[in-house]
Nucleic acid binder design. Sequence first.
DNA 1: AACACACCGGCAAGCGATTGCCAAAAGTTG
DNA 2: CAACTTTTGGCAATCGCTTGCCGGTGTGTT
Lengths: 346, 346
Amino acid sequence: MSDTSAPSAAADGVDHRMPTIRDIAERAGVATSTVSRALSNPQRVNARTRERIEKIAAELNYVPSTQARGLSSGRTGAIAVLVPDVTNPFYFDIIRGTQNQLKAAGYTQLLVDTEEATDVELDALRRLRRTSDGIILAASRLTDAQLAEVAGRQPLVTINRATADAPTVLIDTPGAMVQALEHLASLGHTKVTYVGGPTSSWSTHRRWQAIQEAASRRNIEVTRIGPYAPKTLSGAAAADAALGTGATAFIAFNDLIAIGMLQRFRERGVRVPEDVSIVGCDDIFGADFCNPPLTTISSPIEQAGRTAVSMLLAQLDPLHGGTPRKLAVMPTYLQVRASTGPAKKA
Amino acid sequence: MSDTSAPSAAADGVDHRMPTIRDIAERAGVATSTVSRALSNPQRVNARTRERIEKIAAELNYVPSTQARGLSSGRTGAIAVLVPDVTNPFYFDIIRGTQNQLKAAGYTQLLVDTEEATDVELDALRRLRRTSDGIILAASRLTDAQLAEVAGRQPLVTINRATADAPTVLIDTPGAMVQALEHLASLGHTKVTYVGGPTSSWSTHRRWQAIQEAASRRNIEVTRIGPYAPKTLSGAAAADAALGTGATAFIAFNDLIAIGMLQRFRERGVRVPEDVSIVGCDDIFGADFCNPPLTTISSPIEQAGRTAVSMLLAQLDPLHGGTPRKLAVMPTYLQVRASTGPAKKA
DNA sequence: AACACACCGGCAAGCGATTGCCAAAAGTTG
DNA sequence: CAACTTTTGGCAATCGCTTGCCGGTGTGTT
């Protein structure tokens, strides 16, 4: 870097200073306030003036400064999306959903990976207070109290984590657990093990509860192992432990664990579904082409992301958004593939 | 703004207005400039004063306004990462790599999905000019001229797209193509088809070139089909077309296509690797557990992301960053799994 | 013809930080 | 102890845009 100097005009003769509304105002012979309004509040200004301004803005290749806009208006135009792990395919779809919807609404998405850690989540939330207009919090690890405090400070929507203090998008995996159990029961399984996720995960508790209830109404004995980290690598340990329970069918916290188990069973020579059956959860990328293809709980994840955005936007702009819903439940269903089969005769 | 006066407390008794350096300055009995310096230029201020200020800032739970900071300093503290498709697992790893490294350096990551479209990419780039301090552009679809212009306007690092105008991180997939070809040759394959990616992809051309060169030096006949969109869904069409070439082995533009082909072959009763062999590229999530597990080209993708960040940061701050490298090439190797086998006797 | 009322554009005060410049205080030196 | 240098903190101007308030025009209503 030898240049960077010169009286604001670069050595190549081109003025690299970004144009501001002031430049536009001068060229158009109006006040900056008029330019501002023409550009962000079109109906507030005469059509002819507006067109002239727009034309000049285009010529100058004007791009408004988000910074300045945010500073004076109090709005940042950004929505933060916090997920526990960006590399978990489940969140990909959420991210894509929010991304689409936010872009459509003219917002910028701030993606934050909270690394499955409460303190990272809290810290991010803290500094995001100034940086974003609202937060979408997926699979939060926070306590109810913490969540309430966050919700009190800024618009918030949670995904897969119910709280009275903020609108929530729930994916009805517990409901599908019942389907899964019925499916397994009809295949003759009587002993089922639930392979649990992280202790701090709200979802894993809900699912376990749903399973217990459903099992008690049928003739099924359920046990639980875990917690396991939601990664394929945890699958090996989970598979080994699962085998120790004597159950013939396993319902995993999510597909990542289920796929990991699949791999481990293969290593150990345990056949799926001949020897044991496995049900996953989320129907992520890969669930359809793993070996064997995974029976799992499927849901419109991407839509969950879109719905979360809608709910948040409705909060930000109560007029436009209609009555803000406090809760949306995404339907789920059991996607039966090849990882479940008749129970092996004892 | 109705109040701003009085004890400026909200109805619930809690003051919801965010604290500013001014609040801190008043409490500490110093000027705002001192607070500013204490917080972002510590050695510029007496240790005792600084400690006092820091203490008050902590008590007030002060968070600086990125907006204001950016406006006055000219830096935004954000780096944009543009990828063609956030749901492509290949980019997951890039994203995770940049995310980590950026966070460590105190930057915010702005993730943008360019939807594999040039105009979306250009538009994003345009508005990002004001919003970010620098850009990481993965697998850009832009022309050299467009790229040069972007690079002239703001710090830029490209991934998998060489250009003289900006530092680049390359993943040496072409190099690995040679390995792949040798692997196939040693298995007795003499006719190989390359299943190409999007026309606008720079990588697909490089790979095809490498393949042609390597093939001409051996006794292998290569053909090319495509373009195909880099999604599993394109795999079906690709598989059908591939079969039509009469080749016994296929090298796919990426794992997504390869996995899609795998599925299609299964549907059609074509056995892999007994009837045909497939090599993928990228070693994405899923390549190891699909059926059969995919022989593919593996590389430290996450590190590519991290390296890109380092190179960009070095550009932003030439002093600290040492001599900025202009090019980094990530090593690759062939990961042999079960989708390749001996050529079928004709 | 008189009055009310949009409509439209300008003025100017911020928004919350950073930073160049300056002066008072403190520390050094011969 | 005078002359200097270095520290340290304050002043005030910006950064680029938004927005409340105001007044001058044009249009519509009695």
